[in-house]
Amino acid sequence: MLQFTKKMTELILLLLCVSFIAFMVPRLIPGDPARLFAGLDAPAEVVAAIRTEWGFDQPLVVQYWTFLTKALQGDLGFSIHFKQPVMQEILIRLPSSIELAVAATAISVLIGVPLGIASALHRRKLIDKVATFSSILGISTPIFVAGLCLMYIFSMRLGWFPASGRGSLSKLVLPALTLGLYNTALITRLTRSTMLDALNTDYIRTARAKGLSERVVIYKHALRNAILPVYTIVGLNIGYLIGSSVIIEAVFGRGGLGSVLVDAVKWRDYPLAQGSILAFAIVIILVNRFVDWSYPFVDPRIKGN
């Protein structure tokens, strides 16, 4: 119970921290925040109304309090461009980004882990060289270039998948593959090195000295240990993937949260920008915390700590 309270306190502190960052963003921009929130061409009365609504003439602490209470009630302000509540816009767009990140994670685990294991087991053989080279290629390729190449080959030339939009599974394939590329490469490299480390440990020597078959030594004793850091990185990288969906959505014209954020910045739609930054931050923190909390179930050493 004490554990739970502690974790919740930590989570709330983190959320306060990111909400403060999101809160500060429009206030750090030179100029009158009320005008920024109302839109540059808004009439004076609207600016005045917004000023009182958000308390822009109050001290910063009061402003933050107003921001927090409103945000907790689901009020993140009114999008200048879309002319509707920011919250509504976010709720419409968020599922698309999450769907993309989840699909990309699944792809990268399904390809990266087996490839990394194979690479470690056949060290300096052909498969290791291929895997090592393609993974360094994978982390070096800009994802928008990769996305455009896939789009050119598979939808424009071969016509296998639609080039843009969202809704059906076929429209998810190319964006998820592109987004998963970097992550796949990373997981391949990581699995390879943790597997090599695990195979070099004293307890593997013990397992061999016990007369266990190589299969049991590798897949039971080494893999279970090697996979722990991979699990952490996969979890933490969901945040990275959600962030990178900003670019993928721009490439494939998927209207997710990322493209909304970029557009909001370009259109100077500050309420919307602030709201989407907050939404991103909250989702990422929740995912990271969840991975953290699940760790004791995966690694017995952490249990009860």
Binding site: C17, G239, Y240, G243, S244, V265, I277, F280, A281
Partner: peptide, 16 residues
Amino acid sequence: VLLAMPRILLGIIVVT
């Protein structure tokens, strides 16, 4: 906290 945020997002915040 900063490290938990994707770098591209931090970048966008600064650009905002």
